[in-house]
Design a protein around this nucleic acid. Structure first.
Lengths: 176, 176
DNA sequence: CAGTATCCTGTCCGATACTG
DNA sequence: CAGTATCGGACAGGATACTG
């Protein structure tokens, strides 16, 4: 994707990908969420070329996902800390992890998510906060909000909200 | 990322990204989960060049996320249907969506996630399936499973599980 | 240690034209 | 409608050398 030439069409997903949608950025954020903060830690973990790492770190910092902080005067040393929006990538990483252990042929227990206090393994599931029902059991679907009906029309043609839902229903797309 | 030259180091996240880690693939999957199935629907929604779309569709099909099915004999017509592993991308899309509405400057209600039966808006939260506790409130952290302690050692040096957890703790990485 | 500076290659992608 | 074929440009990314 030619970075800037892209029109995200008002889609939050495209908007998100615009900030960290490339290979290395996600992997760097994974490491950052694992608690790594320093240039050479990233470099060693990822096996990334230093110039590329510089570039990615800068773009992540510009995007506000990481914060560059000097932790030593002489010699000048910097570390990269998670910002709040960086920390909010946690669920994205979790979702990718869950897909990965299910659908790649790695040993299913090569990496596990644990509760650090109890040591118990965690099995994350998306639920609706209000009803508590798992999303898998809900026929969940994206629908155009009031404010964006126009944009959606442009994207999807003159479909109504109902038609959009029908379409999603037809294809079994409800398994979000 | 030079696709094949990459060693995913046994990481399920890197493994996942290897299958659909580029820009267009995720956006195509978003549309597929929205119920779109046909070449020209993708093309119009995304504004993607046809040759690129062909390439991405092929790679997604090869990766097993989509299934190409002929739905008309004469003329020959094909559609792209979600496979199970494709459907399992739902949570990834949801996670990206949630980050997007929170951290991009789109109207927060341009697109909403709704329960198609009740019409009620859904607010997805990751919880631990067993305890029901939101992941935000758990000090969740990735840890090397038994089977992979060796690989992790290679990645992280001679750190123990405990040291890994400490590191995560220090940086506030628990907010997965 | 934490990068910067160069050079080079691959390939992702867009534009366009064409086909059954 | 559902693509294939071809061309060209822009970067991403790797390798390597160098610096305070």
């Amino acid at each position: 994707m030619r970075q800037s030439s892209f029109n995200n069409m008002g889609c939050p997903i495209a908007g998100a990908l615009e900030h960290f949608g490339d290979w290395w950025s996600l992997l760097i954020m994974r490491d950052a969420l694992d608690g790594f903060t320093r240039f050479d830690e990233f470099q060693e973990n990822l096996g990334i070329a230093p110039n590329i790492l510089t570039r990615r770190l800068k773009s992540l910092t510009d995007a506000g996902l990481l914060e560059r902080r000097q932790y030593s005067e002489r010699p000048a040393r910097y570390e990269y800390l998670l910002t709040e929006s960086g920390r909010d990538l946690g669920p994205v990483i979790v979702a990718l992890y869950l897909w990965g252990i299910k659908h790649t042929d790695l040993d299913h227990h090569s990496v596990v998510l644990v509760d650090q206090d109890s040591g118990a393994e965690i099995e994350p599931v998306y639920v609706d906060r209000r009803s508590g029902r798992p999303l898998r059991e809900i026929r969940a679907v994206f629908a155009a909000g009031r404010a964006a009906t126009d944009q959606m029309r442009r994207r999807h043609g003159p479909e109504t909200k109902a038609a959009l839902r029908d379409r999603a229903l037809r294809s079994g797309a409800a398994a979000l």
